[in-house]
Every structure is written in structure tokens, then in C-alpha cells.
Amino acid sequence: MVDGQTLAAILAMAAVTYATRIGGVLIADRLVLGPRLKAAFDAIPLAVLTAVIAPMALATGPAETLAAAVTALAALRLPLIGTVAVGAAAVVLFRAVLG
């Protein structure tokens, strides 16, 4: 059911991932923030979230990029769940139209 090699790989992934999660918290507890470092920390949420989705939004195809633009417009007016629904519908539509 659970293979030894697979278990080892999963445990390695879990250990690495927990280290990344707790690491930032432990480091930050020892930092004193100046204005520039503060600006860097304020930018973290946007910089990280944007980086994760940029390949899908900008470097996959015209249908995905157009759908991302429509989703962004929707996001200015709709709550999160509405934004997701508009995004999924838009990508299906643009993929159908653009092949």
C-alpha cells in the first residue's frame, strides 16, 4: 500500500517543507526592520503570489492570458469565489474560441 521508497520521498518532502515554513518565522523573530527592510517585507505577499501564477497567466497561451485579464477585472468587483467562477468560465470560453 505504502511503498518504502515512496514513504521516504514523502517524508523528505514533508521535512523540507516544514523547514521552509518554520524557518521564516524563526528568522524574523530576530530581525529589526528598518524602512527598506520593511518595504521588502510589505512586498512579500504580492511578489510571491504573482510569481506563482505568472507562468500560467502570461506564458502558457493567448487563451490563458486573456482569461487572466478578465479574471483580474472581475477581481476588482467580485468576491473571491465569484472571481474563481469567472476565471474558470473565461478560460473554457477562450480555449474553445481560440482553439
Binding site: A43, E64, A68, T71, A75, L76, L78, T83, G87, V91
Partner: peptide, 28 residues
């Protein structure tokens, strides 16, 4: 695409943060 759409929604929630436009453009 649901994951991407969700993240676009989360990014939009931070658009009033300082220097948001520049950060999004550079990161993207």
C-alpha cells in the same frame, strides 16, 4: 485554471499596498 484565478483574486486584495503596481509588474 481555478488556482490561477484564485491567486489573481488574492493579488487584487493587496492592490492598495504600497508600490503594488511595481511589485506585481516586476514579479510577473
Amino acid at each position: 485554471f481555478a488556482f490561477t484565478a484564485l491567486f489573481i483574486g488574492l493579488v487584487a486584495g493587496f492592490r492598495a499596498a504600497p508600490r503594488a503596481g511595481a511589485v506585481i509588474a516586476a514579479s510577473a
